[in-house]
């Protein structure tokens, strides 16, 4: 799968630049959620219905790497399947609704001037 045009060797790489490049890749990887599985795969993980390799990877991503996005999705998926799951969040969602409506109306009023 390598580029046919070049035969670059590892020893030709400039270590400090590779280090900086790796940090850039890392930052983009985390921010763009490059390896976050789709919610359908997370649901299958929760239901223990992935194959062994997939299960091992998702477990690493969620538990070892502790991806907060995927942990949040799993918690949300678990909440949807539990009875009375919404009770602790209901008051908060009302408050959130009110504050958002307030800002929407305020912004519409400002934007129309």
């Amino acid at each position: 799968m390598t580029d046919d045009h070049d035969e670059l060797k590892p020893e030709d790489m400039v270590p400090e630049r590779v280090e900086r490049f790796a940090m850039t890749v890392g930052s983009v990887w985390r921010e763009a959620r490059v390896s976050c599985p789709h919610a359908d795969i997370l649901l299958a993980f929760q239901q223990d219905s992935l194959d062994a390799g997939q299960m091992a990877y998702v477990r690493f991503h969620v538990e070892d790497a502790a991806c907060p996005y995927c942990q949040a999705v799993l918690e949300d998926l678990g909440r949807e399947r539990a009875p009375d799951a919404d009770a602790p969040l209901e008051n908060f969602r009302e408050r959130l609704r009110s504050s958002t409506i307030h800002v929407l109306r305020e912004k519409r009023g400002r934007d129309s001037k």
């Binding site: 949040a72 918690e75 949300d76 908060f92 969602r93 958002t100």
Partner: peptide, 12 residues
Amino acid sequence: LEEEYSPRIFFY
């Protein structure tokens, strides 16, 4: 949008 994402954002 809030209905869909607020729990997820909250848990995150």
